[in-house]
């Protein structure tokens, strides 16, 4: 039980572009425990999607390449599997939900046939039981009158419904790990809440592990148990959600939390992080957050910070914190 379901170690994924090498993910390590929702939060371009695509081994070839690292699911390194073996994992042991619900469904097939298709590939069900299973899945994601909806085309459904159908497909083969890459960004507030509650419930029922990718700290607070904060292709802080909000250690995490515009209380003033988001093609040596950091020291501009353990499950990469954390202890 101590062994995590997923263990990612020093993952590096790079893209060769016309403007040079883009180190989209540069040495990312984290783990996801059984039955846990793990958030990956970060701003646009920080490498969240590339991290999740790397786990699925769906990095667009040949421009992109996983350069090094290990991705172990139950102790088995996914990067060493053949493409054919990997195909069984995708949609089998690992499910995935993407941001855009419209492009995740094929407009030429009814939603019923798309669910059945996944079941046919990954399970031994046949004929009628296939169909019954599909209807049952739709019911579980709260689609009203599921038997009738089976024959509907994707474009007839609203965004929220489509995303639920995608959700139904992704859990259809009882995956152990579900990767949800910003599944609610395109949805309205009330629909988003319905969807997140659905994810919570599915997780409770099946003890599935979820990697929830988002740029919304609020959604992390709502849904996740632990979370990692990404900045410029690296994880700068990992902690339980409680620690992340109560004892943030990295100046970037602190800045993000300070710039959150809270719905519970009217703020008189909100601190913002100064400067512009980083350009991955032109990262500074040393800590990539240094140009925007208000606690920056000389060493920050020279060397990338090492990982510091602040407590159980609380890791941070920042030179300044290291000293203070030692002092506190």
């Amino acid at each position: 039980m101590t062994q995590p379901l997923l263990k990612v170690t020093d993952l590096k994924t790079q893209f060769r572009t016309k403007w040079g090498l883009v180190k989209a993910v540069d040495g990312v390590s984290f783990h996801v425990k059984h039955g846990e929702t793990f958030g990956i939060v970060g701003e646009s371009g920080s490498g969240k999607s590339v991290t999740s695509l790397s786990i699925m081994r769906l990095i667009p070839q040949p421009a992109g390449r996983i350069v090094s690292g290990a991705i172990e699911l139950d102790g088995l390194n996914l990067l060493e599997l053949s493409e054919k073996e990997m195909r069984d994992y995708r949609g089998g042991k690992i499910g995935m939900i993407l941001q855009d619900p419209l492009s995740s469904l094929n407009p030429l097939f009814t939603i019923g046939s798309q669910i059945i298709e996944g079941l046919r590939i990954h399970t031994s069900l046949k004929g009628r039981s296939l169909k019954e299973r599909a209807i049952d899945l739709l019911r579980r994601v709260h689609i009203p009158s599921p038997a009738m909806r089976m024959k509907d085309w994707p474009h007839l459904l609203s965004g929220g419904m489509r995303q639920r159908v995608v959700g139904a497909i992704s859990i259809s083969c009882e995956p152990e790990l579900l990767i949800a890459d910003e599944p609610t960004t395109a949805l309205d507030a009330t629909i988003q809440l319905q969807y997140l509650n659905l994810l919570k419930r599915i997780q409770k029922e099946t003890r599935l592990s979820i990697i929830f990718v988002t740029h919304d700290l609020g959604a992390v607070a709502y849904l996740c148990h632990r979370a990692a904060v990404m900045y410029a292709g690296r994880i700068v802080e990992t902690a339980t959600v409680k620690d992340l909000f109560d004892k943030p250690a990295h100046p970037y995490t602190i800045g993000l939390l300070n710039s959150m515009q809270k719905v519970e209380k009217k703020a008189d003033h909100i601190e913002s992080i100064k400067g512009q988001p980083p350009n991955l093609k032109n990262l500074p040596i040393g800590c990539s957050f240094a140009p925007r950091c208000d606690q920056v020291k000389d060493i920050c501009k020279e060397k990338y910070p090492e990982e510091t353990e602040l407590g159980a499950d609380h890791l941070v990469r920042c030179w300044v914190v290291k000293k203070e954390a030692v002092k506190i202890k």
């Binding site: 988003q192 609020g218 607070a221 709502y222 409680k242 909000f245």
Partner: peptide, 15 residues
């Protein structure tokens, strides 16, 4: 009410 309740909390304690 529904709209405000659906807003994401700014802290896990507010869930």
């Amino acid at each position: 009410r529904a709209l405000i309740d659906a807003a994401m909390p700014s802290h896990p304690d507010f869930v």
